[in-house]
């Protein structure tokens, strides 16, 4: 097995974490937690298995735990603040801010599927394995998530919980 297998997954893990959580420090904390859990559960790993699915599955479960955990400082959504990259042009940035805000308001189960599909470009069957749900559930969550996102963006989202990174 490739001796850099997990290191090579780090950029994608960080990207997924950022999309789930929004804030950079919180996202890297999630990656750290994911790696620590992978370390402690290394006995569950079956060589030849899908390492990416294993890691993303761990991260997903940790995130769900975090989201469900009662928090003292605000709503239970994991994505209160999304940092929008500044490199886009102004109108594009507005759209991206809207998208980030809408994403943050999606139910977690829908945003997880949508991100794995659209951002990580995983195959539907791999997502079913990663999230440990039937493929029909993957498709229905994807459909609901996409429609919900579309409706939110058709209306006018409230971008007050956005912070533009400069």
């Amino acid at each position: 097995m490739d001796s850099r297998a997990i290191i090579d997954q780090l950029p994608r893990l960080r990207r997924y974490a950022r999309a789930l959580v929004g804030d950079r420090a919180a996202a890297d904390d999630l990656v750290q937690d994911t790696l620590e859990r992978a370390w402690s559960r290394i006995g569950q790993w079956r060589p030849g298995g899908d390492l990416r699915a294993w890691l993303f599955g761990i991260m997903h479960n940790l995130h769900i735990d975090q989201v469900r955990r009662p928090s003292l400082d605000g709503p239970s959504s994991g994505a209160e603040e999304i940092e929008v990259p500044i490199r886009a042009t102004q109108p594009e940035r507005m759209e991206l801010e809207d998208l980030a805000a809408a994403l943050a308001r999606l139910p977690q189960e829908q945003s997880a599927v949508l991100l794995l599909v659209a951002l990580d470009e995983m195959r539907y069957e791999d997502i079913a394995q990663t999230l440990n749900i039937p493929i029909g559930t993957v498709m229905s969550r994807l459909a609901r998530g996409r429609e919900r996102l579309r409706r939110m963006l058709d209306e006018h989202p409230n971008p007050s919980n956005l912070r533009v990174v400069r």
């Binding site: 780090l10 950029p11 950022r18 886009a88 951002l119």
Partner: peptide
């Protein structure tokens, strides 16, 4: 849009603590 938002993360330097653990 999701790629525009989050792909820049791929190019960020990875924190050393994460790299070492991995």
């Amino acid at each position: 849009g999701l790629h525009d938002l989050f792909d820049p993360v791929l190019d960020e330097p990875i924190p050393a603590s994460l790299r070492e653990l991995a």
